[in-house]
Nucleic acid binder design. Structure first.
Lengths: 208, 208
DNA sequence: CTCCTGATGTCAGAACGTGACATGACGTGC
DNA sequence: GCACGTCATGTCACGTTCTGACATCAGGAG
């Protein structure tokens, strides 16, 4: 018999999910989570750098999935399509978890701290995309833009997926988003510089 | 004579900037900042909800600028151009502050907490863009995508602006980014579905 | 059998953030 | 010109998050 129950990490995640549903995110303490997992607060922080982090363990796996999908894309495919296809490749992994994803997303939407964390995970994935693209020979500046555009498309598709009454899969929504982007960029290009000097309004010298 | 020195808020911001440069972000305490501003820690938290927030006061002003720029865009302009033009309209406000912006950006880049906050500010601006577009009659889904694409372009342009040795303005980089996006989306559209089934690799059922 | 390793616990403490209440200059109305 | 309310600030007390240092102790290696 092992000295400790196995799967401490998973136990903590499960406990956290339960408690967040029962008492809300703010209403539950790291100590509470640890206790329900049969562990100590200190131990929680050895597994997760953060109270928030306990909700975001999946993003590494998503990343791996994306990397391998990019690797298997044909050399000749246009880079934006590579990005879209790679992100769409995670689709099957999500299908099984629509219900969980919904709850989790509701939690995140309700807490600014959690939204912040989610955004930085997206950024991390964008950075990974950029690295992969660079290795395929895409120039830096282009790769950066592609990474950002790709995650924008993904987030957009994810939102639509999660509330899609027809339950079409994530890949479907990715391709729909791409099609729309294509439409938007196609109709542009003529009057691009129209408003350029419209710094009319109030607000002198914002700090930003 | 007033009972208290005026401009408490500005004093706190200035103190924070100084101290962050002197001792780094982690090395300075909210108490330190307040003390240098001649105030109390408690008072700091009345002006800023957060230690981080003291670095991000400019984003509201940026937002106002953008809103008024959108308002003055011609009705007939394609929506993506409206977005780009609106974001580019903040350009003059930034020109005066390239040096400060650099320092600030270095600080943010070095601290995940700060990057998180920056990202959520960008999201806020994206949401504002969406609202403005909706008021112009752009359908919801399209507006969402435009907001995301727009902020992606902005962030991209901002990065390039801040390190541009030729010191071209932010508007220039915005338009360059748009041009590149247009190029990327133009060359797409043929082999879009190539990788779609490439969920080959490892990693079964990521949580995310 | 002994020693080492690694997961966990215990303890103390700093920093963040908040609620409740106190203070006291200033302006307003009477 | 006096009483009163307001508002920015201070004071205090407290809960939570997160960290460093050190203790414990089962099980495996030698």
């Amino acid at each position: 018999m092992a000295r400790w129950e196995p799967n401490a990490r998973e136990r903590l995640q499960a406990a956290a999910f339960e408690l967040f549903e029962e008492r809300g995110y703010d209403g539950t303490t790291v100590g509470d989570i640890a206790a329900r997992g049969g562990l100590t607060e200190r131990t929680f922080f050895r597994y997760f750098t953060d109270k928030r982090e306990v909700l975001f363990s999946g993003s590494e796996e998503l990343e791996k999935l994306i990397v391998s999908a990019i690797a298997s894309a044909p050399e000749t495919m246009p880079p934006l399509d590579v990005v879209v296809a790679a992100l769409a490749a995670s689709s099957p992994a999500f299908e099984a978890r629509r219900a969980i994803a919904r709850k989790r997303q509701a939690l995140i939407a309700a807490h600014a701290e959690l939204r912040e964390r989610e955004l930085i995970k997206a950024l991390k994935i964008a950075a990974t995309l950029v690295t992969c693209l660079r290795e395929r020979g895409v120039p830096q500046a282009t790769a950066t833009l592609l990474g950002q555009t790709g995650t924008a498309l993904f987030q957009n598709a994810f939102e639509r997926w999660i509330e899609d009454p027809k339950k079409r899969d994530l890949a479907h929504h990715m391709h729909a988003a791409l099609a729309e982007l294509r439409r938007l960029t196609a109709e542009t290009g003529k009057a691009t510089r129209g408003v350029k000097d419209a710094r009319s309004g109030a607000a002198k010298s914002p700090r930003r």
